[in-house]
């Protein structure tokens, strides 16, 4: 209930959102949405095109979750990321030495990682790591 039933990553690759990071961009107003919508959130248009997400963004907000769902080792650091150019991604931080390294406004980049193991299958997904300010 708390997670999608695990399937082989081979199958999840067919979903444009999960690994290929395809959002949508409205051809009429330019609004970018990720996850994808069938109808433009901004203007209601159905005239949409695929949009490949950038892998860089900024931490909009976060928490340090000491009581994560089963199969996760605490603490985990869920983040809401504003992606460069538009679109939001809800994910987890990785490769932080301590959760205190994460701040509102931290610059991050997306990397593919094993998220957890569920019912015997590895579940892969994108996580975020801190990048140096340019």
């Amino acid at each position: 209930m708390t997670q999608p039933a695990p399937a082989s990553p081979l199958f999840w690759r067919f979903n444009p959102e999960v690994y290929r990071l395809i959002g949508i961009k409205c051809k009429d107003c330019g609004h970018i949405s990720y996850p994808r919508t069938k109808i433009c959130h901004e203007c209601g248009s159905l005239n949409l095109e695929e949009y490949k997400l950038p892998k860089k963004g900024t931490v909009h907000t976060y928490c340090v979750n000491w009581t994560p769902p089963p199969t996760f080792e605490p603490p985990i650091t869920p983040v809401i990321i504003d992606l460069e150019g538009g679109g939001r991604y809800q994910g987890l931080m990785t490769e932080t030495s301590t959760p205190e390294d994460v701040k509102v406004g931290s610059k991050v980049e997306m990397v593919l990682r094993k998220v957890t193991t569920d019912r015997g299958l590895n579940v892969y997904g994108y996580k975020f790591r801190l990048v140096e300010e340019e």
Partner: peptide
């Protein structure tokens, strides 16, 4: 359950949220 689970399972990463986590991010902000 010891607390409400997140029930938003659209992609793998959404599934890592719990209800306390989803509201905690509002406090941070």
């Amino acid at each position: 359950m010891s607390g409400l689970p997140g029930m938003d399972n659209r992609t793998h990463t959404h599934a890592v949220a719990t209800m306390p986590g989803m509201f905690a991010i509002m406090a941070t902000k």
